[in-house]
């Protein structure tokens, strides 16, 4: 059960870190210091999106497999609701991580 709790929290925690990093990168690009160009920003955001997205995807698959095992084994029934929680949290987190990257993907510059 502890593992399921971790699987529930980790994806959305990854989203939080990813959101913070994307916000910081956009601020660094679009602030007065202009620490990077939009092109470098795009490449960096792509890079920092791929890894958490894959991580969350892995958790999503793990949670889905766990759900399948719980359906087959009645002894694990008390964990069923937490397995569903882990699965749906991962799904929502994956969507949210991809959505974080959309502004950088669709806008060519800080002003749009």
């Amino acid at each position: 059960m502890t593992r399921l709790v971790i699987w529930t929290v980790c994806p959305i925690l990854l989203w939080a870190v990813h959101f913070g990093v994307v916000f910081a990168l956009i601020s660094a690009t679009c602030g007065p210091r202009a620490l990077m160009t939009p092109e470098i920003l795009r490449a960096t955001v792509s890079l920092v999106t791929v890894f958490p997205a894959l991580g969350v995807l892995a958790l999503l698959v793990a949670a889905a497999r766990r759900r399948g095992r719980i359906v087959a084994d009645t002894a694990l029934a008390p964990e069923a609701s937490l397995a569903a929680t882990a699965y749906w949290t991962a799904t929502i987190s994956l969507l949210a991580i991809l959505l974080n990257a959309v502004p950088v993907a669709v806008l060519s510059s800080c002003s749009g």
Partner: peptide
């Protein structure tokens, strides 16, 4: 389980 996932996600988002 869905409701718990929703509340945890909302808490972060």
């Amino acid at each position: 389980g869905f409701a718990v996932a929703a509340v945890v996600s909302m808490g972060f988002l």
